[in-house]
């Protein structure tokens, strides 16, 4: 049964992704919020077809770094980002890059489900509509259906697509937000603690979904749950006090960490 696999707490098969090409290359990234130096000299390669987990204690800079990858920090008034982040070889902080275009390629799912106060259909159709991805209603219907199917939500909502998205349960809302994010066919999907507001069953559904999404997107997930990182990711980065302490294969990070701080964190001594 399929359940057998998902019920296991940690499964370490199919970890080897080192032959995948890097999608995002970050070098020497520093972030300041006013006087506060939130992120210090971070170098990371995000590989294609891979789920990368960012772990670390609260305030360690992992969400900050995630928000650098689609320039969401631009909307924070006093944030300053330096260093280089390349998406498919192109510097995303280059003046010629429109952050709005970039965010269509690097989608984002937030910690708290935030469906728009619109119908389920319109929530998913929002991205394709503003980016003009479809030529007619039929194509749009197709995108909405396929995204809702990918997000494992179609069967639950297909009869009430016109109902408001805010009326769904928490887990359904988060899957709706994932469907909404993948509807713009991004190359990279950023997830900022996507399961922290969900119950265990909804969490399992979302985790299963993340594993399936890996086939089409690079997924970067910030999580506080080390079990979750171990379950869904192939690569793991451990952040501490604004530094990227260790980055490597998930199996290696959890079974054989090189840095003593990583070991302390995953064994529960700091955090």
């Amino acid at each position: 049964m399929e359940d057998q696999k998902t019920m296991k707490d940690i499964h370490l098969e199919e970890r080897v992704v080192s032959d995948h090409a890097p999608r995002i290359t970050a070098r020497g990234v520093n972030v300041h919020y006013g006087e506060n130096h939130a992120l210090k000299d971070v170098d990371v390669d995000i590989l294609s077809g891979t789920v990368t987990a960012f772990i670390g204690p609260s305030g360690c800079g992992k969400s900050t770094f995630l928000r650098c990858l689609n320039r969401m920090n631009d909307t924070v008034a006093n944030a300053r980002v330096t260093g280089q982040i390349l998406l498919d070889g192109e510097d995303i902080y280059d003046k010629r890059v429109d952050p709005v275009q970039l965010r269509a390629k690097v989608g984002m799912v937030f910690q708290k489900p935030n469906p728009f106060p619109k119908s389920i259909y319109d929530n998913v159709a929002y991205g394709p509509k503003i980016h003009g991805l479809t030529r007619n209603k039929a194509e749009l219907d197709g995108i909405v259906e396929s995204c809702l199917r990918k997000a494992a939500l179609w069967n639950e909502v297909k009869d009430r697509l016109t109902a408001p998205g805010t009326g769904l349960s928490g887990g359904q809302q988060q899957r709706l937000c994932i469907a909404r994010a993948i509807a713009t066919s991004p190359e990279v999907l950023l997830m900022d603690e996507p399961c922290s507001a969900l119950d265990p069953i909804a969490t399992a559904q979302v985790e299963e979904l993340i594993d399936e999404l890996r086939a089409s997107f690079s997924v970067v997930i910030v999580t506080h749950s080390m079990q979750q990182a171990a379950r869904v990711s192939q690569k793991t980065a451990f952040f501490h006090l604004g530094h990227l302490v260790e980055y490597g294969e998930t199996g290696q990070i959890f079974t054989n960490p090189r840095d003593p701080r990583t070991e302390s964190y995953i064994t529960g001594r700091i955090g």
């Binding site: 689609n70 969401m72 965010r103 269509a104 989608g107 935030n114 728009f116 991205g127 503003i130 909404r180």
Partner: peptide, 27 residues
């Protein structure tokens, strides 16, 4: 209107005026 709705819209690559028109005003 909660900031999370704005973030959600910007995160999908919407501009400010699209966000205002299609998310914030309806909300």
């Amino acid at each position: 209107v909660p900031q999370s709705l704005r973030d959600g819209s910007y995160g999908l690559g919407a501009t400010k005026s699209e966000t205002v028109r299609q998310v914030i005003l309806p909300a």
